[in-house]
Computed example of a mutant assay.
Amino acid sequence: MGQPAHEGPDLPELLEHLARAHDADTPPDEIAAAVESMVLHPDYPCLGARSVFNRDRATLVVLERMATEEATETLLQALTDFGAETDRSAGFASLVAVFRAAEIADEAGFETLLWRQLELLYEADSQPWDPRVSDDPDNPHFAFSVGGTAFFVVGLHPQSSRIARRTPLPTLVFNLHEQFEELRASDRFSRMRDTIRRRDTELQGSLNPMVADHGRSSEARQYSGRSVPEDWEAPASFEDEETSA
């Protein structure tokens, strides 16, 4: 027997409703509930995100505007603590940073803010870059590092053209990079990757043009969710001035 049909709104309808219902004055607990309802919707394609929320492994941080000194200070501490204290043996875990007062006009504007926020985190961080990954966004082995821990960053926002990247409020999800490496080394990776791509294609009606297998291109191209051209370069640099001189 198949699973019973979902009786609630479909995912795009749910996202539209949540976007209308949430703004800069929304309390953190309501924001947390909105993110969870999105991720746990039956049509949401990312199985990893669903696992994180089903196992109560998501750490939510509610901030105001992106790429500000105040947001950077709070987020830096939260990410440093998250990287140091998270139990890796308990499964996937993510830190979800929601910016409830950020104003996003379009995908390009969000991309600019995302990379500026990452740059500010880097500039404020006293810890060295995680030696397991590259600090060059053009390198196929790049990952963002903060607090000495590498992360795969997923940007989501209300103006995204991809349904799976559309959230009521601008959001950055920081996933522990080592978890992706462990998954890739297992026999579950190909099956999980293919299932996510199939579900995303069914939801959107087309395959995400930015999906790429690890090692073929830099993951930085995927961070904002915008479809970028082949000659795209990240609008940020994470090299020390002494190194790049």
Rank of each mutant, 00 (worst) to 15 (best):
R88W: 06
S237K: 13
F151N: 03
Q127L: 10
P28E: 05
S218Y: 09
T26G: 01
A236P: 04
N208H: 04
V211I: 12
A105Y: 04
A21K: 06
V133P: 00
L114N: 01
T243K: 14
H177D: 09
I163R: 08
G155Q: 01
E111H: 10
R188D: 07
T112D: 11
L47S: 04
A19D: 03
E103I: 15
P27H: 10
E36Q: 05
E230I: 10
D106I: 15
A234R: 10
F180W: 13
D194L: 15
Q179M: 12
G147R: 15
P209D: 04
A67S: 08
E64G: 06
E30V: 04
A108R: 09
P137K: 11
P42H: 09
A5R: 15
E36H: 04
E73D: 08
S190A: 14
E241C: 10
S237W: 08
S237F: 08
A101F: 06
V61Y: 01
T80K: 12
L172A: 05
D25W: 13
T86H: 06
E123Q: 15
P12S: 09
Q179W: 13
L183V: 07
E107H: 06
R132F: 07
E230A: 14
A150H: 06
D130L: 14
H22G: 01
R55P: 01
V96C: 03
R162I: 02
A32C: 01
N54Q: 15
S190G: 08
G109V: 12
C46V: 07
E16L: 14
R20S: 01
Q222C: 00
A212I: 00
A71S: 15
L156F: 02
D25A: 15
G2P: 14
L11Q: 07
R65D: 00
L169D: 00
T72W: 11
H214S: 07
E70R: 15
R197M: 04
Q3Y: 11
Y122M: 06
D136L: 12
